[in-house]
Design a protein around this nucleic acid. Structure first.
Lengths: 393, 393
DNA sequence: CTGTTAGCGCTTTCAT
DNA sequence: ATGAAAGCGCTAACAG
């Protein structure tokens, strides 16, 4: 392995100068820098990560857990997005197992103690999540993907999170259906009260009531619950149509349920089924869905992580610094999203056409969703709520 | 952070003795060891990973890639299994992105040069995979999950792999259906020649021909191809039933296709649909499927990785060392699988009932598949072919 | 602007 | 059986 000394000898300078060329090029005389960089290239030198970590006491690595099974079908795409954004910022991603929340806490302790990671990314936050308590107690940096529902930490500066606005997504989808002439729009949701599920449900409910498409009394008839699998989706769809044969659209809280519902439809029907997450399955079935801006989410997660680590002692002020999301990233952030401070349950037509032709976030079937940068609705720069993209097929 | 010096001071010994207590306890006098271990526990000491890595020049980390999308729905479970087995052996798992094979090669170079990982785990090997060429050329250790189909490296000692026997799984499923009175069994496979797809297809074909359930001429009528999505599965199923209304079972090369096929079935039918991978989707639909022994696979991958790293210079002899898979793992491997050397396309009834009541690998509906240790059919201890478990529902 | 010194935390010699 | 010395490769702090 070629080390910094080899480069130094080759370039006729001291190891320190080589180090400076890499970590602080501006303080090296251009001529010297040139020579050193030539040596680096010729010898194909790459700094040893362990040595650097030992010296700087920074691993430049974040940890993220993987559960025994993932029901969402979106986790692998999220991981890819996260790794991609991390990679672009010189950060590595370490995977650890999470068989339970307690197990994850054990992993926190081990990984943090060994200095394997600087920070963690958490998903699937639950009510009174013990992981948050542990992390806070041990002053361990982290970022949530998903809001800390019911933890009372929604606005806590020391509980940064990035999430996708399910309420908005479902509301937008509902509006789209209404605008295209659908009169009786049902909803299949998850049972129980989950933050995410309830949020999405309310997106449908609020829009339906706002548009006077349904009375409060009638709402229950258009609603069905189903655990997150295909069969449950089928069952719920059948129950819904049984109760309300006049339905002409059913919005599902997930793609899995949408796939189930779609397969339970009579052959000759015109009923529209929509899902959430724009998975391969729903896409192959031609269902409209709601795509989470995973790349954008990952970008913010990495940005916040970087900010935390670069300014560990600086207390968070709680005020938006004016620059917003775009201010930190050094040349990486292409198409930096605008930050629209304020409530996130806004009406669909937010000001500011931010792209080419389409003023609505509804993507045309042909143009892929990925090209449109996600719009941000945020409280401040450590609590980021992203708008999903409605994908109509 | 508490370091080895702190422990040494606390225990009244030298840092070296503390180090020995951790890495080589047997050479420390029991009394001293006791004292040191008490200090370690009291101070809650964990050795710093970077320092150890720098000193030993070993990262004890393996790298594995994540693609932009995964169609298999099994990758996340594999990752969990891999991380779990790695964790049990003191190995960390670093995730890197793989947008293409070339991209992955770039990652290899970067990660290897920085000393971030010792070895890689590769999946989705293709014909003349450029990644293998690169790894060989740079003497970079790795293990494949999945055979190197068509690379001519199937028996190459320096190309270790772990795979699950799709031919066997599908053959066993076919036999099961035959034994339960199914007379006309169709197959939905993937188009084109993929190693995995063809292997599974042949499991059906060989069994059908062996059992005289079909003539060679007739075979084509019972076979349909479909790209790996739900709609394609539906279409193929309909085409199949259209051509052969007498079908009473359809074996699908994947769960995704099985789900599609199942949803395309008439309401009152008795036709059995089976899939591959035992995913949440197919399970929720009550479909029989074939479960890959992911934990077992991961265990072998980690074992081989360890062996490679522990004996870097030792040339592989190509002979089974007699101990087989169970010989290396130190106390971790519970229920070590037997190794049955020989051809892998054996007839179903291989000798040796290895468990309780059931002599056939067909699991009963009630007892979960996971409890049965996977049987190994292997050429040698660096080329491991595992038997999947047939899950009947 | 560049070089020297020192040390991050650990483990492999080699003495004792 | 234990300790002392050295150094893995790198970078912060200072001196020049």
């Amino acid at each position: 392995m070629v080390s910094i000394k080899d480069v130094a000898r080759d370039a006729g300078v001291s190891p320190q100068t080589v180090s400076n060329c890499i970590n602080n090029p501006s303080i090296v005389k251009p001529a010297t820098r040139k020579v050193v960089q030539a040596s680096i290239a010729r010898l194909n030198y790459t700094p040893n990560a362990s040595a650097r970590r030992l010296r700087t006491q920074r691993s430049n690595t974040i940890g993220i857990g993987i559960a025994p099974v993932s029901y969402s079908q979106v986790y692998d795409r999220f991981l890819h997005a996260l790794v991609t954004e991390a990679d672009a910022n010189g950060i590595r991603v370490l995977l650890y197992k999470t068989d339970s929340q307690q197990d994850e806490i054990r992993q926190f302790a081990a990984l943090a103690a060994r200095g394997d990671v600087d920070s963690f990314v958490l998903t699937d936050t639950t009510h009174d999540d013990p992981r948050l308590a542990w992390l806070h107690e041990h002053h361990q940096p982290f970022v949530l993907f998903g809001r800390p529902w019911g933890c009372g930490a929604m606005d806590d500066p020391s509980t940064p999170w990035v999430d996708v606005d399910g309420h908005y997504g479902i509301a937008e989808m509902t509006r789209h259906l209404i605008l295209h002439g659908r009169k009786h729009i049902g909803f299949i949701g998850w049972p129980g009260v989950s933050g995410t599920g309830t949020d999405r449900y309310q997106g449908w409910r609020d829009t339906m009531l706002d548009a006077r498409m349904v009375s409060g009394d009638e709402l229950g008839q258009l609603y069905e619950e189903a655990s997150n699998d295909i069969i449950a989706g089928q069952t719920a769809c059948i129950a819904l149509l049984d109760r309300r044969p006049d339905l002409d659209a059913i919005i599902c809280v997930s793609d899995t349920l949408a796939v189930g519902a779609a397969t339970a439809l009579p052959n000759d029907t015109d009923i529209v089924i929509t899902g959430f997450d724009d998975t391969v399955s729903s896409r192959s079935m031609g269902l409209s869905s709601i795509a989470q801006p995973l790349t954008e989410s990952a970008r913010h997660i990495i940005r916040i992580t970087q900010e935390q680590l670069d300014a560990p002692a600086a207390a968070f002020t709680g005020t938006n610094d004016g620059g917003g999301a775009a201010s930190t990233a050094d040349s990486h952030s292409t198409g930096a999203p605008e930050i629209v401070a304020g409530a996130y349950t806004g009406s669909g037509s937010d000001g500011g056409g931010r792209g080419a032709s389409s003023t609505s976030p509804v993507a045309t079937p042909a143009t892929a969703a990925a090209t449109v940068p996600a719009t941000v609705i945020a409280r401040d720069d450590r609590h980021i709520l992203l708008k999903p993209t409605i994908v109509i097929r």
